[in-house]
Design a protein around this nucleic acid. Structure first.
Length: 463
RNA sequence: UCCUCGGUAGCUCAGCGGUAGAGCGGUCGGCUGUUAACCGAUUGGUCGUAGGUUCGAAUCCCACCCGGGGAGCCA
C-alpha cells in the first residue's frame, strides 16, 4: 500500500520520495506545466502535484487527467511556494489508471445540490461533503464500539430476519421466497398459506433487536446491538429511512435512572470522539453546512442534559402560552413542535423526558407505581427531535401478561420473551439510538438520506 | 399518506400567452505558480409525461409521474 494523503499532509518532509494513488479533483493547466489535486479519501484536503512539461508523454497524460480520473503519482515532496498548502509533490512519473471523460463525468469542480448527488449515489462519495460525512460516520461507529467495549459490554448480533410481528415499532417488510405469481392459499382460499414458505411461517425484516438483546442481557448482563433495522412505513421526511442502523444497549440490574445516565454519557462520548478524530471534517461542516455544529457539539459535551418528566413537560408547554398546532394535554403524545420547543427554545440543549402515560407507549415498558405512567425515556435533541428512545423493561411476569392482554398481543407469539420473566428475571433497561440521526446531528446535514451511502426510502433503492 | 413548493441546456436557475435565455460545465485558443485559477471565443434544449383551452402554450386548465420542504408514523 502507498502512503495515504492524510498522513503525508501532516508529516511529509521535503526531499522525501513518495508515491500516492487517488482520484483527480481538479486540474489547472499553465503554460509549460500543470497542477493537479489528488484526493484518496483519507482526508478532506488532497495533495497538490506539479507536472512539468518535460515528463514523458506529458501531452497524453494531461489530456487524460481530468476530474475523476484515477492516478498514481510518484515524485519528490517540496515546500510549496503557493498559498494554501505546506508541501506539494513534484511529479517524476504519472500513471493514469482510468480516465474520466469530461463530456460525461457528472461531477464538476463546483457545488452540486444534494438532490442531484442522490441521483448519482455511486459517485457522490467523491465529493467534499459526502466524503466528510462518511469519515464522520465511520468515527461515530468506532466511538460507539469503543464506548461499550471499554465498559465491558458484549456486542451481540441479533437476527435480521424475525418472525415476531408484534414488536410494535411500525410496519414490517415481509421476507418470502414464495412464487409471487402463484402463491399457495389456505384451504378457505382467503389468504396466503405461509406454512409453505421457507420458514414455515410468515417472516419479516427486523424493526428492532431489542427483544433478542434482552435475551442476551439475561446471560451477559450488559450487551449492545449495532446493526441494520427496517421499517416499511411510507415516511417521506428528512429524518426517516426504510433501512437504518440502530444501536441498542440492554443492561440487566439497571433501572430507568441508570438507563438515562448512560444515554447522556454515551452521546457525550461520541461527540467528543468525533471532534478529536475528525477536526478537519467538522470544521468543514461548520463552515459550509451549518455554522452551529461546533457550538452544538461543545454544548452537548459540556452541559448536563435537562431531565424532566412527561408531566412536567406538559406543564411547561401549557405555561409557554405558545400557539401549537396540536393540542397539549396530559395523556396525548408530544408532537414534533412540542419536542422542538422544549429542546430548541426553552432549554436550548438535549432534554430527557421520562415517565410517559402508559397509554401511548409499548407493552414491554415497566409500569410505574402510580399505575398511570411507564418508565420510558426519550432524549430530544435540538433540530432533529427524538434521537434516543428507551425504557426500563417490565420484569414482572403478571404485570407484563396483563399489559399484553390489554393490547391484544398473543402470549404464545412471545413465549420465549415471557420465559425471561419466569426464569431468573431481573430489573433491566435499555435504549435505542438511531445511528443516522446521530451522524445528522453531528454534521448538521439537513437530510438523513445524505448521511448513509446508499439510502433506502419509499421509491428509492437504485444503488 | 396529507399539506405545500417545484420539474426549462450536463449542473444551478431566469423566462410565466407571441422567434427558448444566463451563469457554471464541456470544447478550442491565450496566460511562468495556480488554489472551485483567470481572460477570450464557442458548444449545448422533445421546456417531466399525456390530454385540453387558444390563431398561437415553457407560460393557462386537468390528470398522472418524479423531486424538495413541512406534518403524521418513528429512531
Amino acid at each position: 500500500m502507498t502512503r495515504r494523503i492524510v498522513e503525508i499532509l501532516k508529516k511529509g518532509q521535503p526531499e522525501e520520495t513518495i508515491t500516492i494513488q487517488g482520484w483527480v479533483r481538479t486540474k489547472r493547466e499553465q503554460k509549460g506545466f500543470a497542477f493537479i489535486e489528488v484526493n484518496d479519501g483519507s482526508s478532506m484536503s488532497g495533495l497538490q502535484a506539479i507536472l512539468n512539461a518535460d515528463l514523458p508523454d506529458y501531452e497524453t497524460i494531461l489530456k487524460n487527467l481530468n476530474t475523476g480520473a484515477s492516478v498514481e503519482v510518484e515524485g519528490i515532496l517540496a515546500p510549496s511556494p503557493g498559498k494554501g498548502q505546506r508541501i506539494e509533490l513534484q511529479a517524476s512519473s504519472v500513471k493514469v489508471y482510468g480516465d474520466a471523460d469530461p463530456n460525461t463525468y457528472p461531477l464538476q469542480k463546483k457545488r452540486h445540490s444534494f438532490e442531484f448527488l442522490r441521483t448519482i449515489a455511486h459517485l457522490r462519495s467523491r465529493t467534499n461533503t459526502l466524503g466528510a460525512v462518511m469519515r464522520v460516520r465511520n468515527a461515530c461507529a468506532t466511538a460507539i464500539h469503543k464506548f461499550f467495549q471499554d465498559k465491558g459490554f458484549i456486542w451481540v448480533h441479533t437476527p435480521i430476519i424475525t418472525a415476531n410481528d408484534c414488536e410494535g415499532a411500525g410496519e414490517l417488510f415481509t421476507v418470502t421466497n414464495l412464487d409471487l405469481n402463484n402463491t399457495p392459499k389456505k384451504e378457505d382460499k382467503s389468504a396466503i398459506d405461509f406454512e409453505q414458505d421457507f420458514f414455515g411461517r410468515r417472516a419479516y425484516l427486523t424493526v428492532s433487536g431489542q427483544l433478542q438483546a434482552e435475551v442476551m442481557a439475561m446471560a451477559f448482563q450488559n450487551v449492545y446491538t449495532f446493526g441494520p433495522t427496517f421499517r416499511a412505513e411510507n415516511s417521506n421526511t428528512s429524518r426517516h429511512l426504510a433501512e437504518f442502523w440502530m444501536v441498542e444497549p440492554e443492561m440487566a440490574f439497571c433501572d430507568i435512572v441508570g438507563d438515562r445516565d448512560l444515554a447522556e454519557e454515551f452521546l457525550k462520548y461520541i461527540f467528543k470522539y468525533v471532534l478529536e478524530t475528525c477536526p478537519e471534517d467538522m470544521e468543514f461542516f461548520n463552515k459550509r453546512i451549518d455554522n452551529s455544529v461546533l457550538a452544538t457539539a461543545d454544548n452537548i459535551i459540556n452541559n448536563e442534559f435537562e431531565r424532566i418528566s412527561y408531566t412536567e413537560a406538559i406543564d411547561l408547554l401549557v405555561k409557554s402560552n405558545k400557539k401549537f398546532e396540536f393540542p397539549v394535554e396530559w395523556g396525548l403524545d408530544l408532537q414534533s413542535e412540542h419536542e422542538r420547543y422544549l429542546a430548541e427554545e426553552l432549554f436550548k440543549k438535549p432534554v430527557i423526558v421520562t415517565d410517559y402515560p402508559v397509554g401511548i407507549k409499548a407493552f414491554y415498558m415497566r409500569l410505574n407505581d402510580d399505575n398511570k405512567t411507564v418508565a420510558a425515556m426519550d432524549v430530544l435533541a435540538p433540530k432533529i427531535g427524538e434521537i434516543i428512545g428507551g425504557s426500563q423493561r417490565e420484569e414482572r411476569l403478571d404485570v407484563l401478561e396483563t399489559r399484553m392482554k390489554d393490547l391484544d398481543i398473543p402470549p404464545e407469539e412471545l413465549w420465549w420473551y415471557l420465559d425471561l420473566r419466569r426464569y431468573g428475571t431481573v430489573p433491566h433497561a435499555g435504549f435505542g439510538l438511531g445511528f443516522e440521526r446521530v451522524v445528522q446531528f453531528m454534521t448538521g446535514m439537513a437530510n438523513i438520506r445524505d448521511v448513509i451511502p446508499f439510502p433506502r426510502a419509499p421509491l428509492s433503492a437504485e444503488f
